[in-house]
């Protein structure tokens, strides 16, 4: 089962408002000024340990190389990354209708974690599950793990019936 995360305001947070992971050593701390929400590293590792594929799905145009390099400094390796470029090329393509900035169901992502209201609404309209994370919450990682496990259990039960 695939779980994806947005970056800005979800995994990348303002250190003035949120507890953050220890930044990488100089000079990488300057090359990668974004700070990770505390608990990100353990959460990604735990999800992967439990057999979930963990993706990034961001509407930003940060290059895949940049995102990979940033997280490598934290010992995190995502299973795949969808950025703004990839979304445009693979999801929006030449369609006349402007699709939402994220369509996780296109990539068979079962749970997407985001901060934006619009993504939650689009989830209802376009048929993909979104969990909202945006405020400081010391239990944010546990809640995501719990939701991922619940969805997986339900998907497995449904596939046994079929």
């Amino acid at each position: 089962m695939r779980v994806s995360f947005d970056l800005d305001e979800v995994l990348f947070v303002d250190p003035k408002r949120f507890e953050t992971e220890k930044p990488p050593r100089f000079p990488m701390s300057l090359l990668f000024p974004e700070r990770l929400r505390k608990g990100t590293v353990d959460l990604v590792h735990q999800l992967q340990k439990e057999g979930f594929e963990v993706w990034v799905y961001t509407s930003s145009f940060r290059s895949e190389s940049y995102i990979k390099s940033l997280f490598r400094n934290y010992g995190v390796r995502f299973d795949d990354i969808v950025n703004g470029f990839r979304h445009q090329a693979e999801v929006q393509r030449n369609r006349r209708q402007t699709l939402p900035t994220k369509v996780p169901s296109h990539y068979h992502i079962s749970l997407h974690v985001d901060d934006e209201d619009a993504v939650i609404r689009n989830g209802r309209e376009f048929g993909f599950k979104v969990m909202r994370v945006y405020e400081p919450d010391e239990h944010w990682a546990d809640k995501i793990l719990e939701e991922a496990r619940r969805i997986r259990a339900r998907e497995e039960a449904e596939s046994r019936k079929a």
């Binding site: 090359l31 290059s63 990979k68 390099s69």
Partner: peptide, 10 residues
């Protein structure tokens, strides 16, 4: 093509 790249290693 316009030199706009992300720094990924130092």
């Amino acid at each position: 093509g316009i030199g706009l790249m992300d720094d990924i290693q130092a």
